[in-house]
Each structure stands twice: as C-alpha cells, then as structure tokens.
C-alpha cells in the first residue's frame, strides 16, 4: 500500500458530528479521530501515543493560544488538531489526515507518513 495515493472515504453526514467534540471512525482499518470545531474539521489518528490506547476522539476539544487542540482523555496532554504535534511533550506527535465536507458528508483521506 505504501506509496500509493489513497482515495477519499465518505465517513458520515456532517450532522453526526457535534461542534466541540470528536468521534472515532474506521477508515481502511485505521482508527481515525474526527473533530468538528466551530469553523473546521480535523482528523488525527485515534491512538494516544503515550498510552497506546485508542481514545483521542474522546478528548476535550479547545484552544491553546491560536492553536486548536484536543486533550487526551487519559493523561490530558494537548495535541494540535492541525498537525498532530503534542504541545506538552516535545518530539511526540500523532499522524494527521485530510478531511473535508462534500454535500453534507464528511470525507477522510489517510495520509502516509514520509
């Protein structure tokens, strides 16, 4: 699979996402955490890299300065929703994925790591 561009996968209607909250989705066997904020959609791996549990979608969404964030529900480290970078632990990050809304449907395209 590596190296081949992946296509967009329709996940759910936009109305299934509550502003300020995440949900988990299964895209090509990968657990993805989808988040909706007031103005944007974001997608990260659902796996919390610190604990190995698949729970990031259940974290609280918010902001730190200008950065939109989600806090891991287990130990509260914050992640940048745009890049997956952990704001509390240097060098820790989760993968981010492309996400868009077309005709009222949320679509995700998995992003390969370089």
């Amino acid at each position: 699979m590596t190296g081949q561009p992946r296509g967009w996968t329709v996940v759910c209607p936009l109305t299934r996402l509550d502003p300020g909250r995440g949900v988990a989705a299964l895209v090509d066997g990968v657990q993805v955490a989808l988040f909706r904020t007031a103005a944007n959609l974001f997608a990260l791996d659902n796996r919390d890299p610190v604990t190995d549990a698949y729970v990031l979608s259940r974290g609280i969404v918010g902001s730190r300065g200008e950065v939109p964030t989600v806090a891991s529900p287990l130990h509260k480290q914050a992640y940048d929703l745009r890049t997956g970078d952990c704001l509390d632990l240097p060098g820790v990050a989760v993968r981010w994925h492309e996400v868009r809304c077309r005709a009222g449907l949320v679509e995700v395209r998995l992003r390969e790591e370089a």
Binding site: P19, G20, R21, Y54, R58, I60, P73
Partner: peptide, 21 residues
C-alpha cells in the same frame, strides 16, 4: 445540547475510562 461537548470522557459516557480505552 452543547453541554455534552463540555464533559470529560467519564461524564460523557457516564462511566469510568480505563487504561485500555
């Protein structure tokens, strides 16, 4: 409503999150 988005995961699922999710 909006209140659901404020809850910590425990209150959101009315149960206690464990280490494995």
């Amino acid at each position: 409503g909006e209140r659901a988005s404020l809850q910590d995961t425990n209150d959101h699922f009315l149960a206690n999150l464990q280490r494995d999710g």
